[in-house]
Design a protein around this nucleic acid. Structure first.
Lengths: 238, 238
DNA sequence: CTTGACGCTGACTAAACGTTCAGCCATAAT
DNA sequence: ATTATGGCTGAACGTTTAGTCAGCGTCAAG
């Protein structure tokens, strides 16, 4: 109807509007941004925005899809080169992707089905990467591969969402420069390397949690796929 | 002027309005909630909201202060009983604090000075707790106490902010029931216990990060206080 | 030259928003 | 009996919002 399936005319106002929306939405949130300021930033009239995207919700959906698609592309490239654990990997390095990261950080707390499926994919990829890391002896074995992948991904994304607090606490912004990534990653890999608990304490804590849950522990023989998935399937893998 | 310093009349509409605001703000965000629906939930007129709180911003400020004060109270209680690592500790157990947690999760991504100082306090407390844990042999030593405390706190808060994703991935909501806390904590303590990297990989990774930063490593002799603090001092310690 | 499609705009509408204000109805002091 | 206080309301205020619509200019095709 209103959306072009594969738009070849993306060098016109459409792209400018989406870029402006991405930046504004990332900085001030969706609700905190009016179509007027987006149109102003893009140098077009407010009417053109709705002409192209149907509505504000349509514009947000388009931004979601664009960010998710770009992230998927960067992800596949990262999987090839083996970036691995860092969920957003190579996406951080590109200067142009800074508004993209900020937008994603904002949208992670809203209810966006596209972003939700993206998170699910990130966890799945992390689990796969951790599994191959186990095989090559880089990663420790675990009794709960999915849970571990989920927790590590959530931590990584959580740090992105709270990047302003990270910047204040650690002195460098994750979405600004690579220095920020280093300032955050160094203490992170220290914890991820050897843990925080001493060995005996760790053992007793795990035993306590195994007691708390009815099942003694997630069995390795059990299907290690996610127990609860998003309803929606990945959209445009083709 | 408009705000009562220590309100003794909090059993009237004031408390009902704030509770309704807390719940709505937590569910739909501040921008996504109108004074009208808050007034409706509280069973009062919209005019009474601004009569009590001066403006919508005043209501938000009151909510912030209430949540921060409640969290501080729960925190001190937790420090006494020794809950420790979990930043929000005993706050999770109370059924009544569920809207409070959701509100905090939402406000963590907005620019709220009160919440920012609360986060700083949580990191400081975590650092203190980790230090005593080191002394009693429960916690491993670290070259960067502040960084480790910051990262661990950010991870904990990040999981709270992304509680919907955690719920979808792990099958239980951190803000809903204690089962959610267990579902999340079990893989978390596994990672926090022994780490994810094998020993040699962890060592080489740390060496790589030490090379990346100019300074070889944060020296233990250096002042271990936060390098970047919030401008605002803690408000009402008295 | 005419036609039609497309990118695009200015002027507009209706709704929702935060906020204001005059005043009601209690209770309590004078 | 009168006055004052404070919780509280209904009706409106002006502003901002997303979305509509008729129509502009441009460019390629017939």
């Amino acid at each position: 109807m209103d959306s072009v399936p594969t738009a070849p005319d993306d060098r016109t106002g459409r792209a400018r509007i989406r870029d402006a929306a991405l930046r504004r939405f990332g900085d001030d949130g969706v609700d905190g941004t009016s179509l007027r300021v987006i149109a102003d930033d893009a140098g077009v009239s407010p009417a053109l925005v709705v002409h192209h995207f149907g509505s504000k919700a349509g514009l947000v959906r388009d931004c979601d899809e664009h960010v998710v698609a770009t992230t998927r592309r960067a992800k596949q490239q990262a999987m090839a080169t083996g970036a691995g654990l860092d969920a957003l990997g190579s996406l951080r390095e590109a200067e142009a992707s800074r508004p993209l990261l900020r937008y994603l950080a904002r949208r992670l707390v809203d209810h966006s089905p596209q972003v939700a499926t993206l998170v699910d994919e990130l966890v799945t990829d992390a689990q796969a990467y951790l599994a191959t890391g186990e095989d090559t002896g880089m990663i420790r074995p675990t009794s709960d591969p999915w849970g571990r992948a989920a927790v590590l991904t959530i931590w990584s994304l959580g740090a992105l969402v709270l990047h302003e607090h990270v910047a204040r606490l650690l002195g460098a912004d994750l979405t600004e420069d690579t220095a920020g990534l280093v300032a955050y990653s160094r203490p992170a890999v220290e914890v991820l390397g050897s843990g925080v608990f001493t060995e005996d304490i760790a053992a007793s804590l795990q035993a306590a949690y195994d007691d708390l849950a009815q099942v003694p522990a997630p069995d390795a023989s059990t299907d290690q796929h996610p127990p609860h998935l998003t309803a929606e399937p990945p959209p445009g893998i083709g």
